[in-house]
Design a protein around this nucleic acid. Structure first.
Lengths: 140, 140
DNA sequence: CCTGTTACTTGAGTGAATCAAGCATCATTG
DNA sequence: CAATGATGCTTGATTCACTCAAGTAACAGG
């Protein structure tokens, strides 16, 4: 997603800031992924492999088709960042796991994605709590 | 972007909520676009045509290549939602404008994209101001 | 076993995005 | 005023994300 998601016609200021936040966040995420030569989707999947897990679990968590995950994982595998081992308990299934290089790249990505950290860091601890509470309420 | 952008390893709660917000926002945007049979990118471009403007202006504002805009606008044109008139002042340039049908679809999209409105609406006016201030500060 | 479900892959198709080239037009300036 | 270069946009080629429909293998229950 290079194109931003909004604004339609921001009626309130809060809405406009919300849009700004989302836009900047998304771009920062993509830029951080690019720094380690990954797409957003690849970085996302790689980041969810702190423990090995099945393709189906990934698809469900990420809310997309299983075949989409297959492709992304195949690419990550080709890059040497993950492995797909057979699941001994179920030979239909595959267990995806990060390789050491995958760990390293994921770590570098996490370091490069400073946006959320930095943004939150601009707030005092009290303000952070306020923000958390407000966003929770807004999210319903 | 069906896959969410995050979380890497959310250290603070505020970061986690931030990620949640971005994820829900992006999905809501895409869903609203889908309701009027548009992609996010198409809805985005359509939404920026309150006045007619050149391709280059769009590309610059949206931070992407001009050829990307060309493609999206071509599709919107094929759907009868925009026109590309020649610019009388500069015959290299084209002026993109929404058609009446484009206006209508854009309006329906804006109505369908309730997320930001609804989220903000869950806050009192005071809270809205607080949130705006906090996000502004966080954005730096 | 047989049946149905599950887990994943494959294939086809669309769209977004980027890059490199190309074309026409404008704008400068020697 | 003609040559030069910059602009504004399009085309073509490629890659990736995404979805849907089908397919294959393996599990699980009767």
């Amino acid at each position: 997603m290079a194109l931003p998601n909004g604004p339609v016609a921001t009626s309130s200021e809060a809405e406009a800031v919300l849009f700004d936040l989302v836009d900047v966040y998304d771009r920062a995420y993509e830029a951080a992924a690019a720094e380690v030569s990954l797409s957003s989707a690849q970085a996302c999947v790689l980041g969810r492999l702190d423990e090995r897990r099945g393709m189906g679990a990934l698809a469900e968590e990420l809310g997309c088709d299983a075949s989409n995950i297959t492709q992304i994982v195949v690419r990550l595998e080709a890059l040497g960042l993950v492995t797909r081992e057979p699941n001994p308990r179920d030979r239909r299934a595959r267990l995806v796991a990060r390789t050491p290089r995958g760990d390293e790249v994921n770590q570098r990505f996490a370091t490069a994605f400073t946006f959320a950290r930095t943004a939150i860091g601009r707030l005092s601890p009290d303000e952070q709590d306020q923000l958390t509470a407000l966003l929770r309420k807004a999210l319903g």
